[in-house]
């Protein structure tokens, strides 16, 4: 027993020596961080990265706000960045410590949620659109009608991903409104449309990468990268961009105000803006990254993927979701509750 204890103590001591070079606590979405990226970072810098998962912006915000998590970096979506800034939860970046900051692609530099990128650096961005199995339906898939007015072939076979903001925004754009609107006429139209469509849905679930690939679900509203991953396993899965309007999103990395490993965090932020490393991020979750010069390092099948390159004709329909006002959020929740009751 005694020997066991001393061995354990020795083991503990040796591991903590290995970590002595520094550590970093990354708080990021689940199934979103390439392990190879973390390994490469660890090999280059000796900094050990601990990854903690979350499943929604609200969970992340609540945990960060509660404090005591010991996280250094968090990856909020565009419409949450200003909430973090307003609440003082993330700190302004010292850009002189981030030489690779210049690698941020120009179109991702002057973004409305963080003009000039003083708080966040790009992680990945993508869109919400329609995944459709071409065996089940061969008509026009570039429309939200896929789930809001399902064609006969898809009745009872459509999934809707239960992400309140995405679904309500898609519905609002479909009936001619805008995301986060407080216009009750539009909200009413969107609600009626959703209530009318719901009996034609099969399910409201996540995990569509697998379900689309295995033909368990024939159509779904979903995120582009996940649909891309489904297509790699099942080439019948197509991705459509709703012409009535579809949400764009970007998740960016921010440095928390109560971060303890600030130096390590700066090293990591600079590291991920290196084109080669940004490409590693994309290679895993299959979304674009927002760093210029990363294309040559991307996996070959991504350079011409229709899920990643938005066709010119649909580009204008893609809209970044704003941060909804409390009033709009109340409308959203009320409609969502009525939809799922």
């Amino acid at each position: 027993m005694k020997r066991l204890l001393s061995t354990a103590a020795l083991l503990l001591a040796s591991t903590s020596f290995a970590f002595a070079e520094g550590e970093l606590q990354l708080f990021n979405w689940g199934d979103y961080t390439n392990p190879e990226l973390l390994k490469k970072f660890e090999d280059e810098t000796g900094i050990k990265v601990t990854l903690t998962d979350y499943d929604s912006n609200d969970t992340a915000l609540a945990k960060v706000e509660a404090g005591g998590g010991g996280y250094d970096l968090v990856v909020p979506s565009a419409n949450y960045v200003q909430i973090y800034v307003t609440k003082g939860l993330i700190q302004e970046l010292d850009l002189s410590r981030l030489p690779n900051h210049a690698n941020i692609a120009p179109e991702w530099m002057e973004v409305p949620w963080d003009p000039g990128r003083h708080y966040t650096v790009p992680w990945q961005w993508g869109s919400v659109g329609m995944a459709v199995n071409s065996d089940a339906f061969s008509g026009d898939i570039n429309t939200s009608a896929i789930f809001l007015d399902p064609p006969e072939e898809l009745v009872g076979k459509v999934n809707v991903h239960p992400e309140m903001n995405d679904v309500l925004s898609l519905a609002l754009m479909y009936v001619g409104g805008e995301a986060c609107t407080e216009d009750t006429e539009m909200l009413k139209k969107a609600r009626d449309k959703l209530l009318e469509a719901k009996p034609k849905w099969q399910s409201m679930d996540y995990g569509m990468t697998t379900k689309l690939a295995t033909n368990d679900v024939m159509a779904s509203s979903y995120w582009n990268g996940a649909v891309f991953r489904a297509r790699l396993q099942n080439d019948k899965v197509q991705f459509g961009y709703p012409k009535e309007g579809f949400p764009l999103w970007m998740d960016s990395v921010a440095l928390l105000s109560d971060a303890t490993n600030v130096d390590e965090a700066y090293q990591f932020l600079n590291f991920i803006m290196e084109p080669e490393n940004a490409a590693l991020i994309s290679a895993f979750a299959r979304y674009a990254n927002g760093i210029s010069g990363s294309d040559p390092f991307m996996p070959e099948d991504m350079s011409d993927a229709p899920e990643i390159l938005i066709p010119q004709e649909f580009k204008a329909a893609g809209k970044f979701l704003p941060t909804c006002s409390a009033k709009a959020q109340e409308y959203y929740t009320a409609i969502w509750t009525e939809l799922l009751k």
Binding site: S56, D58, T59, A62, E163, M164, N165, A326, Q329, T333, W336, T337, L340
Partner: peptide
């Protein structure tokens, strides 16, 4: 789920 909604997206 409904309670979960209030603490998450429902705010």
């Amino acid at each position: 789920n409904f309670i979960d909604l209030q603490f998450g997206q429902g705010r």
